[in-house]
Amino acid sequence: MLEPGLPARAPGSFLARHGNGYRFTAGPEALDLNRFRALVTDARTFTGRAEPTQALERYAEALHLVQGRAGDGLADTPGARVVFANLDDEFLEAVLAAAGIAVRLHRPARMLAPLRRAAEMEPLHELVQASLVTTLAAAGHRAEALTTYRVIRTRLADELGIDPGSDLQQAYRRILRVSAAPAGFAKATRRTGPGRRPRTARDG
């Protein structure tokens, strides 16, 4: 399973005999976690250099490596739960940073998949849910963004007895402001540009 092309009984790269059993060994280059952390470090470096496009690419590559909760089903001791929870936090932090960049670059759709994954992992994490609401709206999915907000608002009330915090409320208000803008205003502004007036029927 680990090395499908390896001939029978040939020594492999990952399993070595150890006493009456086997020991699994893998170099740093074989671990997704190391690759994830290296890519996130690169992304932060590009962010610090004011190179957001390159930062977003590194974040996207890193987040693609994460398929769900770290150690899902294996956290059977308090120590293991702490380790895996910290790894999940690394993923959430990277998602939030990447989503902010994607929205600023007008490429919000790029981060919807990892954001949805993060929101499923942490249904009560207000920063993650607020980022999902904002990114959905920026990608043109306003109905889904509003539904997402209402779901998390109800969940917070039912499970924790609290109202949405400032981040969620601000994300909601931004959707309402955009929805309330005069139809066609943004399009006309982009088309005519500063210092030019829109063409009208009288212009011929």
Rank of each mutant, 00 (worst) to 15 (best):
F14D: 04
A16S: 06
R17I: 06
H18L: 14
H18D: 15
G19W: 10
G19H: 08
N20G: 14
Y22R: 14
F24C: 07
F24A: 10
T25N: 14
A26G: 15
A26L: 14
P28K: 08
E29V: 13
A30T: 10
A30C: 04
D32Q: 12
D32A: 15
L33Y: 13
L33P: 01
N34C: 07
N34Q: 08
F36C: 02
F36N: 01
R37C: 06
R37F: 07
L39W: 00
V40S: 02
D42L: 12
A43C: 09
R44T: 04
T45D: 11
T45I: 11
F46K: 13
F46V: 05
R49G: 11
A50W: 12
E51V: 11
E51W: 13
P52L: 11
P52N: 13
P52S: 12
T53R: 14
E61C: 04
L63P: 06
L63K: 09
H64I: 01
H64E: 15
V66K: 03
V66I: 15
V66M: 11
R69E: 12
A70T: 08
G71A: 03
G73D: 11
D76V: 10
D76F: 08
T77L: 04
A80T: 06
A80N: 07
V82W: 09
V83H: 03
F84T: 02
L87G: 06
D88I: 02
D89S: 10
D89E: 15
E90P: 03
F91H: 05
L92V: 14
A94L: 08
V95H: 00
A98F: 04
A102F: 05
A102I: 07
V103H: 00
L105C: 03
L105F: 07
H106K: 15
A109R: 08
A109S: 12
R110T: 15
M111I: 00
A113T: 07
A113Q: 05
P114F: 00
R116E: 15
R117L: 15
A119Y: 04
E120Y: 02
H125E: 04
H125Y: 04
L127D: 08
A130I: 03
A130P: 00
S131Q: 13
L132N: 01
L132Q: 00
V133P: 01
V133G: 01
T134A: 10
T134E: 12
T135K: 00
T135V: 03
